[in-house]
């Protein structure tokens, strides 16, 4: 193996991946260009907009601010991993039912961040939803329908 390259092993959405990568490769580029999972978006590239959010070992992170080599051994969930058996995840369904998107660019990151939020706080208030999504920018909706979508999902997930 080339000395400057590193082999990394990850589990993404339940599937095992092994690749040799340059250490400077960002996790978001690994997900999109190496693993072929383009649901995770490249937005601002400066740790602000949240479009690149994925869950790494249980924590929502901005994958533009993480090296792929840091994820060696990690279990990763991307937007592609949320729907099960052809059924939308309740958060995805909420965005559909409550019109939580317009152009859709921020939506994968928004949904993944909402996933972390509801895991930590299954019954959030409107303020808590807005606070929990502070790391994700949407330039279309004005956020109100996103809040509605997360509330829809919270109710549905509590059954």
């Amino acid at each position: 193996m080339n000395k400057s390259r590193k082999q990394i092993n990850t589990t993404i959405n339940g599937e095992d991946y092994t690749h040799e990568v340059e250490p400077r490769l960002l996790l978001v580029h690994y997900l999109r260009e190496v693993a072929g999972l383009t649901g995770t978006h490249v937005g601002c590239e400066t740790s602000l907009c949240g479009a690149c959010t994925a869950i790494v070992d249980g924590q929502a992170v901005k994958t533009c601010t993480m090296l792929a080599v840091q994820a060696d051994g990690a279990e990763i969930t991307t937007i592609e991993g949320l729907a099960q058996d052809g059924e939308l995840h309740p958060i995805q369904e909420g965005f559909w039912e409550r019109h939580g998107l317009q152009c859709g660019f921020c939506t994968p990151g928004m949904i993944v961040a909402a996933h972390q939020l509801l895991e930590r706080n299954p019954n959030p208030s409107e303020d808590e939803i807005r606070h929990g999504l502070e790391g994700n920018f949407c330039r279309c909706t004005g956020y109100q329908h996103i809040v509605d979508a997360v509330q829809y999902a919270a109710e549905k997930m509590q059954g």
Binding site: K62, A113, Q116, E134
Partner: peptide, 9 residues
């Protein structure tokens, strides 16, 4: 500090 994702890492 920062936002949820930043605080996670």
């Amino acid at each position: 500090i920062g936002d949820v994702q930043v605080r996670n890492k």
